[in-house]
Amino acid sequence: MSNEELKNVSVTKSIDARGTACPGPLLEAKKAIGTIKAGEIMEILSADEGTKVDIPKWCNKQGHEYLGTVEENGYFKIYMKKK
């Protein structure tokens, strides 16, 4: 998805994991994924560079759909759709 599309996507759940470094954001994402339904979209805010690469790997393994990452000022917004 392009940046424009991602900015307008309707997010069911947003997790702010900017206060934690690797593997904190992944752990928070794992904990939150159980609270949304299949097909719903989750956004993960992370200031950790590694997480940007890790979340797509996690999505790939679990079968979730990784939608893309938007770079903000000093952090990333990572979007994914639950399987």
Binding site: C22, P23, L26, L27, A29, K30, D54, K57, W58, K61, Q62
Partner: peptide
């Protein structure tokens, strides 16, 4: 522990 927690987070 970092590797373990990351792995467990990936189920």
């Amino acid at each position: 522990m970092v590797i373990s927690v990351a792995a467990a987070a990936m189920d």
